[in-house]
Amino acid sequence: MAWFERKKEKAAIPQTKELWVTCPRCKKYFAKGDWTGICPECGYHGRMKARARIALLADEGSFTELFREVSYSDHLKFHDASGAYKDKVEATIAKTGETESVVVGTATMGGVPVMLGVMDFAFMGGSLGTGTGERICRAAEQAIAERRPLVICSASGGARMHEGILSLMQMAKTSAAIGRLKDAGLPYISVLTDPTTGGVSASYAMLGDINITEPGALIGFAGRRVIENTIHQKLPDDFQTAEYLLAHGFIDKIVPRKELKAFIVKMLHYFGF
């Protein structure tokens, strides 16, 4: 068996790329038609485009996008080895159709009016840029003004280094705005989806009155390799998974995708909305 599987991995897989999907977590292969974004083997919930997740969570036709005019800023005229930030981010805009790494807007969920923000990992790795922070800050402020609960689904590698120190400051800005929303007696539900790390996990993603996640999601502060290099040890496979976070007390519940909306609505009902 072992020799047979090894051979298959080496020879067959590259030729059938269009027909097969690999689960990023358990590395098992599935026929493309059978892959729904959720691994039938290990339960890992694959990444979703922001628009798809909005369709999943918002009542049909209820989402009205806000602050789309707020976008990235190239105030540093940032260049690296592979070229200009401006070119990269413009290419991302052209490719994804989004103008920032988070899409925010008003919606209803199970009939409850909410402010909804969903990050898109396909947009510069979901990085927290000045535009991202500004959209989240404005969303929180408008939610306070309209007495709406706030729901943010995070997916991010962290702060956007191309925007330098001001991207770091978005961690403080978003946390300050969300603190005000919570102080105003409004609930904030944070959905940490795969992956939520770095400056986003270390700011608004971890500040939920309720923090929930999906099975198998990667959630953490520092990257696995950085930690392994620091402690000179290999980390266990389940390190920084949703299940690890739950066991360590940082997540209220792991909620499968098909139950996500119902769970959020249920919490909002408990909170009197």
Partner: peptide, 26 residues
């Protein structure tokens, strides 16, 4: 930077920083 270690992750480095930001802002 904040300590990038396994024990720091286990005790919630991300949560501790996030909470500090919210806390000092208010």
């Amino acid at each position: 930077g904040a300590y990038p270690g396994d024990t720091a992750e286990a005790r919630g480095q991300a949560e501790a920083i996030a909470k500090s930001l919210e806390f000092f802002a208010a």
